[in-house]
């Protein structure tokens, strides 16, 4: 598919001498939710890092018609890509409110909107991010990404290692964001939730995309073979 909000073609990247991506192609359309899937070490996070220009790569990356290959990471983010990195990486020395304010750019998502989406953040507003629980830190990193008022939100393992009740809260938030028309590229291993949220799936295997399609078309054989589920 081409002409989407995000178009990636033939993405290749290395870590030193080790080849991480051998040619990944994917696209995300306006208002579309795309799930990037695959077992550990298949190149999902590397693909996201390349899209965000946090590491060098070869191949074409276009966002809203702009060629991202020569842009630094901060310019890519300013174009409208919000990243929720894996591992709940908030700004630990800052308070919850300071984390949100630091990232703020003009748009519909402001402090009030984020605190309405995650009311716990309002309760913890003056608390240092480092002292939050894992789930609260994750909602904070999602809130921080939303404060940049992105056109595309990228979530890298946003529910990994969280309690079921927090995972549920985050999946409901993702559904709410989809309903508001936000484009989302997400990496996750929760097949049931991906089936409920995603419009399309892209499966990576050893640094290359091997399957694209609707979640409903994923067969048991494919999930066994590529996802180890």
């Amino acid at each position: 598919m081409s002409g989407g909000l995000l178009d990636v073609r033939g993405l290749r990247a290395n870590y030193g001498g080790a080849v991480a991506l051998r040619g990944v192609s994917l696209s995300v359309g306006e208002g579309e939710v795309v799930a990037l899937m695959g077992r550990n070490g298949m190149g999902k996070t590397t693909t996201i890092r390349c899209v965000m220009r946090l590491m060098q790569s070869e191949g074409a990356i276009r966002f809203a018609g702009v060629d991202l290959r020569r842009l630094p990471a901060h310019r890519t983010a300013r174009l409208g890509i919000g990243l929720v990195p894996e591992g709940r990486r908030c700004f630990a020395p800052l308070t919850v409110r300071e984390n949100l304010i630091a990232a703020a750019r003009a748009g519909a998502w402001d402090l009030g909107a984020v605190e309405r989406l995650f009311p716990r953040l309002a309760e913890r507003s003056q608390q240092r991010a480092a002292t939050l629980s894992g789930g609260e830190q994750q909602t904070l990193t999602i809130g921080r990404a939303l404060m940049t008022n992105p056109r595309l939100l990228i979530l890298d393992e946003a529910t990994e290692g969280l309690a079921p009740v927090v995972r549920q809260e985050i999946w409901e938030a993702i559904l709410g964001l989809k309903a508001r028309g936000l484009s989302i590229l997400l990496v996750d291993k929760s097949l049931a939730e991906i089936r409920a949220v995603a419009d399309r799936c892209v499966i990576l295997e050893r640094g290359a995309d091997v399957w694209m399609g609707r979640p409903g078309d994923l067969t048991r054989e494919m999930t066994d073979r590529y996802l180890g589920v």
């Binding site: 965000m52 946090l54 630094p72 990471a73 901060h74 983010a77 300013r78 919000g82 990243l83 990195p85 990486r89 700004f91 630990a92 020395p93 800052l94 300071e98 304010i101 630091a102 990232a103 703020a104 750019r105 921080r144 990404a145 404060m147 940049t148």
Partner: peptide, 23 residues
Amino acid sequence: RLGLALQAARQNRQRLAAVGIRP
């Protein structure tokens, strides 16, 4: 905001760049 971004840059420059601020 400069001070907050400064403290964020001290912790992780890439993370700051990912929210659109040039470290």
